[in-house]
């Protein structure tokens, strides 16, 4: 019973189950990030590239976007800016294996909620995620 309460505390109460899109060209990172998000009770979809995500039917019902910065073709930051430019802003968390202060500043100025260097602590990602889902204006 205590476990059930704990689990309920962790999962934000939403009208429907929140859908998180994970976009990363590295299969391992993509699948384990998706697994982590699913394990806390969210619904998650994984995409190998920004282009795949844009072409999918999940685009319109994604509540939060977790995207890798360094990908062949369109980068995670490009994806965020493109969505914002089209007026379809999705709360975005960027993850990267090449932490770079200049890009971090550019990302945060462009409205990205979190910029997380890989490997990131589970708590950091989930904290960012809750903030992104719970309150449109909060940032980390």
């Amino acid at each position: 019973m205590r476990v059930a309460i704990g689990a309920r505390l962790r999962v934000p109460k939403l009208k429907r189950k929140a859908v998180i899109a994970v976009v990363d060209d590295d299969e391992s990172v993509r699948e384990t990030t998706k697994g982590l998000i699913r394990s806390v009770g969210f619904s998650a979809e994984a995409f190998g590239s920004a282009e795949d995500f844009l072409a999918s039917h999940h685009l319109g019902r994604t509540d939060c976007l977790i995207a890798d910065v360094n990908m062949p073709g369109m980068s995670g930051l490009d994806l965020h800016e493109r969505l914002a430019g089209a007026g379809k802003t999705i709360p975005t968390i960027l993850i990267t294996a090449y932490p770079n202060e200049r890009i971090r500043m550019r990302a945060l100025n462009a409205g990205v909620r979190c910029y997380l260097p890989k490997p990131f602590a589970e708590g950091d990602l989930l904290g960012c995620l809750r903030a992104a889902l719970g309150n449109g204006t909060s940032s980390c």
Partner: peptide, 30 residues
């Protein structure tokens, strides 16, 4: 980068695995 990618996957995977095991009943497949 080469090292951080698998490390990120390991940290994520371990976190997720623990959560699946903590469930009542545990989700052993996941």
């Amino acid at each position: 980068h080469e090292i951080n990618q698998p490390l990120a996957a390991i940290v994520n995977g371990a976190g997720a695995g623990l959560r699946w095991l903590d469930r009542q009943p545990p989700d052993l497949d996941e």
